[in-house]
């Protein structure tokens, strides 16, 4: 079991070459390799998301990025998601492209009963049409919470289960996502983007209370 877990963690870490932003491969320019993107929307909470990414010209363009997602609410930093990852255009035919994204993620969640620190991995594939003015793509993704550290509060032990065990729990969950993303270029470089879709818990797991996601974004290369 432990070997499997270590392998999963390594896999998650190795996925660190991917993720982050909605990239239009046709407007990507290596003289403006950096990009900031701001999203607002719903992604397992009403969220504000900020991303930074940088494009690299390897054998094919690769975009590596860091992404931070903060839920809204009265306590701003008790819950958040950090993602480090990259995406690459793996195939291209005329205006169509196939994109592969991978990321490792770190999530923090805290309420009165527990603090959760969770490491996971995300993978997604996109197929769509990309033009210099716009793009639209369908997206299929999977997000696995590989290992989660649960630390329970005194409230949990007093009012709930005194024998609750703190520790690393493996694995704790996974969700598929299906949706579309689209973008419209503004001026020469900037872009407004839209992602929307639904989530579906793995196996026969109960789905999320609100199994949808929606992101409106604005990206600016520099």
């Amino acid at each position: 079991m432990k070997t499997l877990i270590i392998a999963l963690v390594i896999l998650a870490a190795a996925a660190q070459s991917g993720y982050s932003q909605d990239v239009n491969w046709r407007t990507l320019q290596m003289d403006r390799p950096n990009r900031l993107q701001l999203n607002i929307g719903y992604d397992y909470a009403a969220v504000t998301q900020l991303s930074y990414s940088r494009a690299f010209d390897l054998s094919r363009p690769v975009v590596v990025g860091l992404h931070c997602s903060l839920p809204m609410g009265s306590q701003v930093v008790d819950d958040f998601v950090l993602r480090l990852g990259a995406q690459v255009e793996v195939a291209r035919w005329r205006g169509f492209s196939a994109t592969f994204k991978a990321a490792s993620n770190f999530r923090r969640y805290q309420n009165d009963l527990v603090r959760m620190l969770s490491f996971g991995a995300e993978f997604s594939a996109l197929i769509g049409y990309y033009d210099t003015d716009w793009h639209a793509a369908v997206e299929l993704g999977f997000d696995k919470a590989v290992a989660t550290r649960l630390t329970h509060s005194d409230v949990m032990k007093e009012y709930g289960y005194a024998g609750v065990r703190d520790g690393w729990y493996v694995p704790t969950g996974g969700n598929f996502s299906y949706g579309i993303q689209a973008g419209k270029t503004i001026g020469d470089y900037a872009e407004v983007t839209l992602r929307l879709g639904m989530t579906d818990a793995q196996f026969d797991d109960e789905d999320a209370m609100l199994p949808y996601y929606l992101q409106l974004g604005f990206g600016m290369p520099f």
Binding site: Y42, Y44, A45, A46, P71, M72, G73, S74, Q75, D79, V81, R107, Y109, N111, M116, S118, D143, A145, T148, T172, G173, G174, N175, A201, Q202, F203, D204, D205, E206, A208, M209, L210
Partner: peptide, 20 residues
């Protein structure tokens, strides 16, 4: 109210724990 901490505390955990 999706901007409320109460709702946030309830829905955020769905991405960390799923189960049957």
């Amino acid at each position: 109210d999706i901007f409320d901490e109460t709702v946030n505390d309830r829905v955020f955990v769905d991405q960390i724990i799923t189960g049957s």
